[in-house]
Design a protein around this nucleic acid. Structure first.
Lengths: 225, 225
DNA sequence: TTTTGACCAGATAGACTATTTCGGTCATAT
DNA sequence: ATATGACCGAAATAGTCTATCTGGTCAAAA
C-alpha cells in the first residue's frame, strides 16, 4: 500500500475542508470523493462508513492539535508553568477550527454526529486529563494544594470553550484581541495556581516536560499504528 | 390606578413562567392573558406590543437580579473583594433562569426576540459596566494595575456565561457542584486581581460599597418611575 | 373610563405528494 | 486485486394547499 496512505490523506483533507465549511450534515460523501479526486466507492475501501471517516478525521486533527500544543509550549521561553500550559492549550484550540467545534460540541458543524450514542470524543475525559496534570503538580507543590483539580480543570475548560465560541453570541468588534485574552488568561491561571516557591516551580516545569514527552510518545504511537 | 399595578405584575408573572418554560416564540399573548386571568385586550392596555411586554419583564427581572446580587454581597461576611463581587454575580445569574438566558443570549428561550435590531440588553454594556468597577478599584490600588479592565471583565463574563450554560454541552452529572464552582471562581478572580496591601483592600471595599449603593438607588428610581 | 372579546390580516402548522439527495452496495471494468 | 459509478431503499427536502393560530385593533359592553 504505497499511494494508499497518501490517498487516505487526500480524502481526509477534502473532508476537513468541506466539513469545516459546510458542516457534517451538509457534506455528502460523494462530494468528498469528488474533491479528493477519487470515486465514492474508493472511500468505502478506506472507511467503513461516513461516521468512521469522520472519526478518522477527528483522530488526525486531535493529534495535529496536540502536536501544535507541544510546539507552542516548547517555543515559549517562559513556558513551564501551569498557566502557560493552558495558555497554549487555548492557543492551539483556537487555531484549529475543527477542534474548536469539537471542544464546543458545535451543532452547526457537527450536526447529526452529535446524536451518535458513543462519540469517541468526550468532554469529561478531556477535563479529567487536565485534572490529572494539576494533581501531579500538586504532588510536587508547584500548584497550591487547596485547589480541587477537577473543579479547576472544569473552570479552565469553560474558559477555553467560552473564549473560542463567544463570537456566536457577541459581535466580533466587541471581543478583545485574542492575544490579550491569551496573556490575561495565562496570568490569571498562574496567579491562582502557581506557588511562590522557586524550587517547587522548577519541579513543576519538570513534571510538565515529562507529561509533554509522554504525550508526544503516545501520539507518535498512534500515528504509526 | 389602584389594582392596575398589581395586574401588571400578574401579567408579567404569567409571562415569566410561560416564557421560561416554552420560550418567547411559543408563548402566545392569549395564553399569557389567560394565565394572568385577564383578557387579551387588557394586555395591550399595559403594553404596546409583545416585544414591549417582554422588555418590561426583562427590566423587572434585571432589577430583581440586581437586588439579589446586592443581597448576596451584603450577606457575605468576607464580601468586599472583587472576587466576591463576581462570585455573587455568578450566584445571582445562576439563580435566575430568565437572566441566565439573557446573559447567554439563549436562542431556545429568547427566540425571535434576538432578531430585534435594538435589544435593550447589550452584552458589551454589561462587560463595560464591570470594567468600570475594575478601573475604579485600580485607582485606589485594590486591584493590580497591569490588568486590562475590559479584557479581564470580558474573561469574567465568559466564565459567568460558560458556567451557567455548560449543561447544554455536558451531562449534568459531570458538572461539579455549583457551590464548588462559585468558591473556586471567587478565589481565582481574587488571587489574580486583589492586591496584597491590607490598606488598599479596605479602600477597595469602600469603593464596592459605594457602587452597590449607587446601584441600589438607581434601581429604586427605575422601580418608582 | 375601563375592560372586553369578536374580528382581521398575516404568520404558522399540518397533511400530503413529488422530487431530490444521501449513505452504502455491488456488478462490471481495469 | 483495485477501482469505478450506476443503482437502491430510505430519508430528507421542496412544493402546495388548507386549517389553525397569533399579534394587534376597535366597537361595544360594563
Amino acid at each position: 500500500m504505497a499511494g494508499s496512505d497518501e490517498r487516505e490523506t487526500r480524502i481526509l483533507d477534502a473532508a476537513l475542508e468541506l466539513i469545516t465549511h459546510y458542516g457534517y450534515d451538509r457534506t455528502p460523501v460523494s462530494e468528498i470523493a469528488e474533491k479528493a479526486g477519487v470515486s465514492k466507492g474508493a472511500i468505502y475501501l478506506h472507511f467503513e462508513s461516513k461516521t468512521a471517516l469522520f472519526e478518522a478525521l477527528l483522530n488526525r486533527e486531535m493529534n495535529a492539535y496536540a502536536d501544535d500544543w507541544i510546539k507552542r509550549l516548547e517555543a515559549d521561553p517562559e513556558g513551564g508553568t501551569i498557566g502557560s500550559v493552558y495558555k497554549h492549550t487555548l492557543g492551539a484550540v483556537n487555531a484549529n477550527r475543527f477542534m474548536r467545534a469539537i471542544f464546543n460540541q458545535d451543532r452547526r458543524m457537527l450536526g447529526k454526529y452529535l446524536n451518535e450514542t458513543d462519540q469517541m470524543f468526550n468532554l469529561k475525559t478531556a477535563i479529567e486529563a487536565r485534572a490529572t496534570l494539576i494533581r501531579r503538580l500538586q504532588e510536587v507543590k508547584a500548584v497550591r494544594a487547596d485547589a480541587d483539580p477537577y473543579v479547576v480543570s472544569y473552570l479552565i475548560s469553560v474558559l477555553v470553550s467560552g473564549i473560542t465560541s463567544m463570537d456566536a453570541i457577541m459581535p466580533e468588534e466587541d471581543i478583545p484581541p485574542f492575544d490579550d485574552l491569551l496573556m490575561t488568561f495565562g496570568h490569571m491561571v498562574d496567579s491562582y495556581l502557581t506557588t511562590d516557591d522557586e524550587y517547587d516551580r522548577e519541579m513543576g516545569k519538570q513534571v510538565i516536560r515529562e507529561v509533554v514527552n509522554q504525550y508526544r510518545r503516545a501520539s507518535t504511537e498512534v500515528d504509526s499504528e
